[in-house]
Lab assay of single mutants.
Amino acid sequence: QIFVKTLTGKTITLEVEPSDTIENVKAKIQDKEGIPPDQQRLIFAGKQLEDGRTLSDYNIQKESTLHLVL
Rank of each mutant, 00 (worst) to 15 (best):
Q1G: 05
Q1E: 07
Q1K: 12
F3W: 07
F3T: 07
F3C: 05
F3K: 06
V4E: 00
V4Q: 00
K5G: 04
K5S: 09
K5F: 07
K5A: 08
K5T: 12
T6R: 06
T6H: 06
T6E: 04
L7I: 14
T8Q: 12
T8S: 14
T8F: 11
T8M: 11
G9H: 05
K10I: 09
K10Q: 10
K10L: 12
T11R: 08
T11V: 12
T13R: 08
T13S: 09
T13P: 06
T13N: 06
L14T: 01
L14S: 00
L14G: 00
L14N: 00
E15T: 12
E15K: 11
V16T: 05
V16L: 07
V16Y: 15
P18N: 07
P18I: 12
S19I: 07
S19N: 12
S19F: 12
S19A: 09
D20A: 06
D20P: 01
T21Y: 08
T21E: 03
T21H: 04
I22H: 01
E23L: 14
N24C: 15
N24R: 13
N24F: 11
N24L: 14
N24P: 00
V25C: 05
V25D: 00
V25E: 00
V25F: 03
V25Q: 00
V25N: 00
V25W: 01
K26D: 00
K26I: 03
K26A: 02
K26Y: 04
A27Y: 15
A27N: 13
A27S: 12
A27K: 15
K28M: 12
K28V: 04
K28G: 03
I29D: 00
I29G: 00
I29P: 00
I29Q: 00
D31I: 14
D31Y: 09
K32M: 12
K32Q: 13
K32V: 13
K32W: 06
E33L: 15
G34A: 05
G34T: 03
G34V: 02
I35E: 02
I35L: 06
I35Q: 03
I35C: 06
I35R: 03
P36Y: 06
P36Q: 06
P37G: 08
P37Q: 10
D38W: 13
D38A: 11
Q39N: 08
Q40M: 15
Q40G: 04
Q40S: 04
Q40Y: 14
R41K: 14
R41S: 13
R41M: 15
I43D: 05
I43K: 05
I43A: 06
I43G: 03
A45E: 15
A45L: 12
G46Y: 05
G46A: 04
K47D: 07
K47T: 12
K47I: 15
Q48R: 08
Q48F: 14
Q48A: 11
L49N: 00
E50T: 06
E50L: 10
D51L: 05
D51Q: 05
D51N: 09
G52M: 10
G52R: 09
G52Y: 12
R53F: 15
T54V: 06
T54K: 11
T54I: 06
L55I: 08
L55Q: 01
L55N: 00
L55K: 00
S56Y: 08
S56C: 07
S56A: 11
S56Q: 13
S56I: 10
S56T: 09
D57R: 03
Y58V: 02
Y58N: 02
Y58H: 04
N59C: 10
N59G: 12
I60T: 02
I60N: 01
Q61Y: 09
Q61G: 15
K62S: 14
K62V: 12
K62D: 09
K62E: 09
K62Q: 10
E63D: 15
E63N: 14
S64F: 09
S64Y: 10
S64P: 03
S64I: 05
S64V: 07
S64G: 06
T65A: 04
T65C: 10
L66R: 01
L66M: 05
L66V: 10
L66E: 01
H67T: 13
H67I: 14
H67K: 07
L68Q: 02
L68C: 04
L68K: 00
L68N: 01
V69F: 12
V69Q: 10
V69N: 06
V69K: 07
L70I: 12
L70N: 08
L70K: 08
